[in-house]
């Protein structure tokens, strides 16, 4: 539904109902999702969960009739908020380094250099507590997933899939291409916030 017309706003927000108490708002990409999630939190709109993702923001635990008009005031911006910068020390010895080098048409040494030169942004968390989808890999460096996931990827594995980079907070099955490992704690429920890389955090990888 287009909620802009109701308030005569110039901005059009497209939102899909998700049952009676949630809406899924379409956005142009992860940067816009982050911006909208921050905007909703800043306004203290009555909402239980704000879940930014790749191309949507889920607002759960809301009265759609109340929240949709409020959203009309949002002006879409692709500019991601600049959160804190976290440096993650990596030992680049992942078992998929060669495959990534092949995909990029370069050498393993060059893969490490390029990866460590990028600044990523945590776009959203999902899959596991503290697992952040890190955006920042350019399209031409997109990496295919494994055809069949590994049954166990060790905690601390630094891996790539598509244009995403991620660090496994705990050991789990996984189909991403592993390029290295880190000892940094990604998830600690006694820490505030418990995730090291909550959405909006900027991330750089530093060769150990």
């Amino acid at each position: 539904m287009d909620v802009a017309g109701a308030l005569g706003s110039r901005v059009s927000v497209r939102a899909r109902p998700v049952g009676p108490s949630a809406v899924l708002v379409d956005v142009a990409g992860p940067g816009e999702a982050l911006a909208l999630a921050a905007w909703v939190r800043d306004r203290s709109l009555p909402v239980v969960e704000v879940v930014p993702a790749a191309a949507t923001v889920l607002l759960d635990g809301v009265d759609p009739a109340a929240v949709l008009p409020a959203l009309a005031a949002w002006e879409p911006t692709a500019e991601a908020p600049t959160g804190g910068l976290v440096e993650v020390s990596v030992t680049y010895d992942g078992e998929d380094l060669d495959a990534v080098a092949d995909a990029w048409g370069t050498t393993v040494a060059e893969v490490v250099e390029r990866h460590a030169a990028l600044t990523f942004v945590s776009a959203f968390c999902g899959f596991a507590p503290g697992f952040a989808y890190l955006a920042g890999l350019p399209d031409e460096l997109s990496v295919p997933r494994l055809d069949s996931p590994r049954p166990r990827v060790p905690a601390g594995s630094v891996a790539l899939a598509g244009t995403w980079c991620g660090v496994y907070p705990t050991a789990s099955p996984g189909g991403w291409r592993i390029i290295g490992r880190t000892d940094v704690g990604l998830w600690d429920t006694r820490r505030e916030p418990p995730a090291l890389l909550p959405p909006g955090t900027r991330v750089r990888f530093v060769p150990a």
Binding site: V18, S21, E49, A54, A55, V57, L58, D60
Partner: peptide, 10 residues
């Protein structure tokens, strides 16, 4: 479908 937020009862 790009990953998106899920609700209880989905």
């Amino acid at each position: 479908l790009p990953s998106e937020g899920m609700v209880l009862g989905a």
